[in-house]
Nucleic acid binder design. Structure first.
Length: 439
RNA sequence: GGGGGCGUGGUGUAGUGGUUCAACAUGCGGCCCUGUCAAGGCCGAGACCGCGGGUUCGAAUCCCGUCGCUCCCGCCA
């Protein structure tokens, strides 16, 4: 038995075929039964003349929608059939797994339950076409990212997620018992990426899980997410990182549009275009001036920083004035950045760093890193950090580590931006949050 | 951690003090009709309105508490 995809059935007119999929709709009539079968590639009508096989007719009558079925029959062309003009005349049907009746909710109904309820039954939710598209797009995007990097001499690494020490200050850490001691879940591969620079790998990237123990209740935070990280050596400044990054992202858009542009347009009503390179750039100082100019009031405690409203305002401004979805905010004050970001040599207190906003949402943070041992130590001290705690990390900068920089990038946030999804829970296979540990 | 909003049959909603206020849709069950078309028609089951307390002659409807969800802020990807 060779299983035929529904989309390929028109190449098998007149043949007996076997298809596998879910019972999308059952129309059980007096003499005829019509089953609409759905697989990943489409839907087709299967017709059964009841009197031809009463036992089979009875089996079909008892089927709940969404049951997983294997069906065999002859493909016939029939212009009367509105679904593609073809149907399968059923000869045999196997119930692989019946769907209990009733379903918790109808994945293909007129309306959807609350997101939280859908998350409880995520596998049913994921049967929806839009979700299959989202994760197909993610797959293509990841492949494109990897392809671009491989074409630019990057090495892929996989750094440990169980750590003896916090990877950097800031975000809260998850701790776990580890034999006789306590370990932590990595909140970033930051230190390991830099160790790869010290190792002479020159260019590395990693796709991997990142854990944040922050009790954040927003539409864009998760306690576990997929981080996309990159680090490159021998750079002149953070501009080199941004220049590579924007081309990498444009290439990713290109690949996604190439493969899914039509589906995205028909399913999401979204017409995607490859973002033009270079992306707009604005320094933090300029950003503050811009905000004043467009009338956005930043809270006083944010004089070195931006708040989400300001990011949305800046994103909207560049969309409006330059038609661009992305903008780099560069040159952040040291106050708002971790100790390892390199300072501008001629601008006191300003780092060689950037955030990337997409549709006003922070999707990446990057910088040139401070690779000079003594300078790095003094910057750590300036942040009030203990050099003893950091010694393993600081050791990476003692025996010939090149200048380098990189960024961390949120995969699900990128999907939100790309597909204009309003909630990160829709952009991730399984959501993890402070109060969501299952499924 | 702080603030706002919401919580009504399986699911989604309507109803914001009182006469069938517990409705509508969808799903579910039964029947009817029909090569149907993400079908149509009829009938039916299903919620004491998150939970606890209070106000009132009377509460889904007002108040307080609590739990859950959600969004915003903080934090960040």
């Amino acid at each position: 038995m060779q299983r035929i995809y529904i989309k390929d059935l028109n190449q098998h007119i007149g043949e007996q075929v076997t298809i596998q999929g879910w019972l999308h709709t059952l129309r059980d009539q007096k003499n005829m039964q019509f089953l609409i079968i759905r697989d990943r590639t489409g839907m087709v009508q299967v017709a059964h003349f009841k009197k031809g096989n009463l036992e089979l007719a009875q089996l079909i009558s008892g089927l709940g929608t969404e049951s997983a079925l294997t069906l065999t029959g002859q493909v016939v062309k029939n212009d009367i059939v509105k679904l593609g003009g073809i149907e399968i005349q059923l000869e045999d049907l196997g119930v692989e797994n019946p769907a209990e009746v009733p379903l918790p909710f109808e994945p293909f109904g007129e309306y959807l339950p609350d997101q939280d309820f859908r998350l409880d039954w995520r596998y049913l939710d994921l049967r929806r076409e839009i979700n299959q598209l989202i994760f197909s797009v993610q797959t293509t995007a990841e492949q494109a990212m990897r392809e671009y990097w491989l074409d630019h001499d990057f090495i892929e690494i996989h750094s440990p997620k169980i750590m003896g020490m916090p990877s950097e200050s800031g975000a809260e850490l998850f701790s776990l018992p580890y034999f006789e001691t306590t370990a932590y879940l990595a909140q970033s591969p930051q230190f390991y990426k830099q160790m790869a620079m010290a190792a002479g790998f020159e260019r590395v990237f990693e796709f991997g899980p990142v854990f944040r123990a922050d009790p954040s209740f927003t539409s864009r935070h998760m306690t576990e997410f997929t981080g996309v990280d990159m680090e490159m050596s021998w750079i002149q400044s953070h501009e080199d990182v941004m220049a590579l990054m924007e081309r990498w992202l444009a290439f990713t858009h290109h690949r996604v549009i190439e493969k899914h542009g039509d589906a995205i347009e028909s399913t999401l009503g979204l017409h995607l275009e490859v973002p033009t390179v270079p992306f707009p750039r604005i320094t933090m100082a300029e950003a503050h001036k811009l905000l004043t100019q467009i009338g956005y009031k930043l809270p006083p405690e944010k004089k070195f920083d931006l708040d989400p409203g300001a990011e949305r305002a800046i994103g909207a401004y560049f969309k409006e004035t330059q038609g661009h979805d992305y903008v780099f905010i560069t040159d952040w004050p040291f106050e708002a950045r971790p100790f390892y970001h390199m300072l501008h040599p001629d601008e006191p207190g300003i780092t060689r760093s950037f955030d990337l906003l997409g549709r006003g949402l922070e999707v990446a943070t990057g910088a040139q890193r401070e690779h000079r041992y003594e300078v790095l130590k003094s910057q750590a001290l300036a942040k009030g950090l203990s050099l003893e705690m950091l010694q393993n990390y600081l050791n990476y900068f003692r025996y010939g580590t090149p200048p380098h920089g990189g960024f961390g990038f949120g995969l699900s946030r990128f999907l939100m931006i790309l597909l204009d999804l309003s909630n990160i829970r829709e952009a991730v296979f399984i959501f993890r949050g402070p109060t969501r540990l299952s499924p």
